[in-house]
């Protein structure tokens, strides 16, 4: 058991696995995203209420979905960092935080642009948009803290504490923002509330969510590899790896 755990935490082992996994992740991601997005853009039926503007859903929902789960993943890795001091978890949090930030921004941006034809305004202090904005702040804080601390081990542990505090707060923030929202503007139109979505709509949505997940997997692998190389550049296996790649 502990051996497996130890192996899982070994950067060298991960590096090899990632190298083998990445082509599949990328191919799957591009295929799923291409099918999902083209289907959503051109073939899915028009929404009877919102018209064609609802087609933004095929990128809005995947981005929002992933933005939130990346934060949860970071928090999980943060626990691993603090409890078991696994190097790979440190690397994961550092590598993935900017990706989460970009995804959160995308969710906000597409939400705002979607709001213009649907609500008639770019920004609405809607519960979901507001909690997304707060998530953006949380990501920004984690990245800023990571950059501010020079020692990489301390940085990883400090960010882990921050992300954990953030993840405890997320349900509270969500709840309070929803409460605040009902207090200030009752009955707003919900973006994605569709009691019965026809299959021609949710299948492409599912495909693009899966596609973006795979793409995130590829990005995470690549960025983690970069981080591992930068940290372990003086070790023997890195030397063998880079010299072998040059010869071959």
């Amino acid at each position: 058991m502990w051996q497996i755990f130890h192996k899982l935490g070994s950067p060298k082992w991960f590096f090899g696995i990632a190298t083998r996994l990445m082509p599949w992740l990328l191919a799957g991601a591009l295929a799923l995203l291409a099918v999902g997005l083209v289907w959503g853009l051109a073939f899915a039926p028009k929404d009877y209420l919102q018209g064609n503007s609802y087609r933004i859903i095929f990128i809005h929902v995947p981005s929002a979905f992933l933005a939130q789960s990346v934060y949860i993943m970071m928090a999980t890795a943060g626990v691993v960092t603090l409890v078991w001091r696994m190097k790979l978890a440190d690397v994961f949090v550092k590598a993935v935080a900017p990706v989460g930030l970009v995804l959160t921004f995308l969710a906000l941006f597409t939400g705002a642009v979607w709001g213009k034809p649907t609500w008639g305004t770019w920004w609405i202090w809607d519960a979901r948009l507001t909690s997304m904005l707060i998530l953006l702040f949380l990501y920004g804080g984690a990245i800023a803290l990571d950059r501010a601390i020079n020692d990489e081990k301390s940085a990883a542990r400090a960010v882990a504490v921050l992300v954990l505090v953030g993840v405890v707060n997320i349900p509270i923030i969500k709840y309070s923002v929803e409460w605040w929202n009902t207090l200030h503007q009752p009955a707003t139109f919900k973006l994605t509330e569709k009691p019965s979505m026809p299959a021609e709509m949710w299948v492409p949505l599912l495909l693009s969510v899966l596609g973006l997940y795979l793409l995130f997997g590829w990005l995470a692998c690549l960025r983690m590899q970069t981080e591992i190389l930068a940290r372990e550049q003086r070790t023997r296996w890195v030397k063998e790896h880079v010299l072998a790649r040059r010869a071959g």
């Binding site: 707060i134 702040f137 949380l138 804080g141 953030g166 923030i173 709840y175 309070s176 923002v177 605040w180």
Partner: peptide, 14 residues
């Protein structure tokens, strides 16, 4: 401030 303000939001709201 960057780290803490997001965490203050629920207290402010309530």
């Amino acid at each position: 401030s960057l780290l803490i303000i997001p965490l203050y939001i629920p207290v402010l709201i309530f």
